[in-house]
Design a protein around this nucleic acid. Sequence first.
RNA 1: GGUCCCUUCGUCUAUCGGUUAGGACACCAGAUUUUCAUUCUGGGAAGAGGGGUUCGACUCCCCUAGGGACUGCCA
Length: 468
Amino acid sequence: MTERSAVVTRFAPSPTGSLHIGGARTALFNLLYARHMGGNFLLRIEDTDRERSTDANVQIILDGLGWLGVTPDAPPVFQAAQADRHRAVVQELLARGRAYRCYMTVEELAEAREKARAGGPAIRSPWRDRASNDPDAPHVIRFKGPLDGETVIDDLIKGEVSFQNKELDDLVLLRSDGMPTYNLAVVVDDHDMGVTHVIRGDDHLNNAARQALIYEAMDWPRPAFAHLPLIHGPDGAKLSKRHGAQAVGEFADMGYLPEALRNYLARLGWGHGDDEIFSDAEAIAWFDVADVVKAPARLDWPKLNHINQHYIQQADNDRLAELVCEIYAQRGSPIDKDQRPKLAGIIALVKEAAQTLLQLADLTVFATRSRPFALDEKTSKLLTEETKALLSRLRTRLDAETEWSRPELERTIRDFAQGEGVGIGKFGQALRGVLSGGVPAPDLASSLMALGRAEALARMDDALSLLQ
RNA sequence: GGUCCCUUCGUCUAUCGGUUAGGACACCAGAUUUUCAUUCUGGGAAGAGGGGUUCGACUCCCCUAGGGACUGCCA
């Protein structure tokens, strides 16, 4: 677009709740675009609503972004701290005749609003053209918008969007308690922070016109706007709690890897040909806000799971072991630190079947449970005299195994079946049950590997003696 | 109600006037198999509807329908 020297984007969440998945994607797109253009990505905490903003929520946002790997290039700017600057701009607007004091009561306002909704014109305070200027009486300061003409937003995603100025009401700039409002604060802060590209949710498209008017009134250059469609739930409705999760912290708790969520989010509302799985570097090289899809996208759990599974396969086993340990701890059955290398080995054998870290943890349970344990009903039934005799002989063979490796164990099992003149099916399920106790386990050779010789043989002994 | 936005397989998307409308997830079938899963092969599946513009529209314009956002001294 223009020849601006350096691109500056920002993510501006309000700490009145947790960091939503939609917000996380907005932040990601801001980051990707800034990186793509070789610019900077900033974070601004919009805490002008003093009643609902909390430090805890600020921390949640920071933690969430950190976990996702979408971190700003500078410390966050806190909007409320800029209140003096905001007020100064309002004074300037007043001086320029582009704002006015409004003394309407809440009742009068409610009435005007009702009228506006019933088909009347946009809200315009009767004080707009009144001379009264008593700074001591309770009042708000409103923007004095133009009555005619139109305001055009050249949105990078939506294209040209025009608004009739007469439809735009005179928004409040300064509340009666002297605190600036959102629409004023964003404009001032974006200007002060040198933001060149405002990339934010679709829900702000209407505000863009009002904000454009403020830029104009201050004779400030307008940034480029890009309004992203919102993320909806699987049913097409606005994403909410009943859809499973909305806070990024919840996605972490559900066992998603940050790089998987990043990849999924990037693909949600944006595409690059047939590419589905790509690295951060590729995303940066390929991403352009102008390519973002105009329509809202729905969150699709199965696809997220699939991508997550892919990244679990790619992930380093020691890292996965550490994450799985955390899950064990959360579940109230922590594992000793020195067991971690062994856990990593187990993970290597079972991870192909895991779509989430929670599932990965489940898949390791068979190997980490402590002996002796009761056998499940199904396995008990399988253990007939005949099968036990088979397993007993197999135990001898395994005990004599010189090399405890997967291919070797596989061969031993095969040879054993052949030598006995039976199919693997004759004892395979029973052996699995004996080794695992009935919880999910991988193929026989892998299970034996995961347990190690001593543990595997001990478990067989347990089962065989238990049922003597 | 008003203003604004959106509309390609079930879902995410590719296509930037000329394609048998491609891919991925999901689904179905088959193969492999000692459970579950994985893996492999194959399959069904789309331009909301109606008008234009054009030699030719998914692609450009208009209308209708449906969905969404906003309509606060919230952000």
